[in-house]
Nucleic acid binder design. Sequence first.
DNA 1: CTTGACCTTCCAGTAACTGGAAGCCTTATG
DNA 2: CATAAGGCTTCCAGTTACTGGAAGGTCAAG
Lengths: 129, 129
Amino acid sequence: MNIGEVAARAGMPSKTIRYYEEIGLIRPSRSANGYRAFHESDLHKLAFLGRARALGFSIEDCRTLLALYEDGSRESAQVKALAQQHLAEIDAKISQLQSMHATLSDLVQACHGDARPDCPILADLSSEK
Amino acid sequence: MNIGEVAARAGMPSKTIRYYEEIGLIRPSRSANGYRAFHESDLHKLAFLGRARALGFSIEDCRTLLALYEDGSRESAQVKALAQQHLAEIDAKISQLQSMHATLSDLVQACHGDARPDCPILADLSSEK
DNA sequence: CTTGACCTTCCAGTAACTGGAAGCCTTATG
DNA sequence: CATAAGGCTTCCAGTTACTGGAAGGTCAAG
């Protein structure tokens, strides 16, 4: 399989796949012509990575997850710990965004949004204290 | 005022303030010794930027907001439009994170997290289809 | 034989800082 | 007056996870 087909099947750009090779997440072999030659196992790894990334895991987390996945003697506790930690980060981000949302939607509500310069949003941003 | 005091009063690192100057968000004057000399107006702008950043606005949005703030003949509609657009992005991020959260917390729930290698989280990530 | 679609590598840019090195300025102290 | 501490300066590199683009090799079709 060439990179284009793999990209299509894994649902990610070829660029990303090359990048993943560059940082050592995958190691496709090479054909005589210099093209990357992907096996099913490479495709499988890429799909794994794609799903992990879709869940918001960082590349380094993905590297760890992949290593755990390939380590038959892993302890599920390690995986769970990593996932829980990530979940906590997600929670934190959600809270932060919700807080932003609350403030900002109040301000947007308060702004009449017409041709006049008077604006509660700017007033809030420039408020003393 | 030197940069240290401004940093303390604006609640951001000196590094950030230098960076904001570098990208043209502020233009503090200079003392004879080469130190940046901040006026109250600079501090005010930095506080404005800090609040806008805290609401998640990008630097470029901040630049626009600052320009609008300083333009006495702005139309509040412009500010409101920018804020609404940002609010939509926040909504999108929250949805995405909530979706990740839902999937991941299910998986975490399902993982016994002990010394055994069996792990629903890895199973899901490596699932065909 | 040429065209077009793939493939290759390499370099640069993105967002918004952050860390660190090398060195000048200022102030307090012995 | 020498020096040491702390603040200031600039400049360079690194971070995250790609993405775009240039220059050029390869392959299948007409």
